[in-house]
């Protein structure tokens, strides 16, 4: 579930980035890289888990699924916070660091 949520977030971010490309003023590409990087890593983790559990991998316990959903949403929230921090530090619109 975490992998699924992260892949969806990565796809949405990529579409937003592509819509504005080549302009990347708001550093959406950073968010894309973060989500795609995590998606690839969790995909590898999922493949290893599938090799171990076989078909049982696709029928998780409801409690585990709920926990994974919360984790996926928390991961998105964390990535957004990191992205906002990067955006404010870089300050592309020069709102926080106006040249005098």
């Amino acid at each position: 579930m975490t992998l699924l949520i992260t892949v969806i977030a990565a796809a949405v971010c990529t579409v937003i980035w592509y819509k504005n490309a080549p302009d990347d003023k708001f550093k959406v590409s950073t968010l894309c890289f973060m989500f795609w990087g995590a998606s690839l890593m969790w995909f590898v983790d999922a493949v290893f888990e599938y090799a171990e559990l076989k078909a049982a991998y696709f029928t998780p316990a409801p409690e585990d699924m709920l926990n994974d959903t919360f984790l996926g949403l928390s991961v998105i929230a964390l990535a957004l916070v990191i992205w906002i921090a990067i955006l404010l530090i870089k300050d592309p619109k020069k709102v926080l660091r106006k040249d005098k």
Partner: peptide, 12 residues
């Protein structure tokens, strides 16, 4: 960015 992004989220 791919590596750091993935690592930060996996650390979490």
């Amino acid at each position: 960015n791919l590596l750091w992004g993935g690592c930060i989220l996996l650390t979490f």
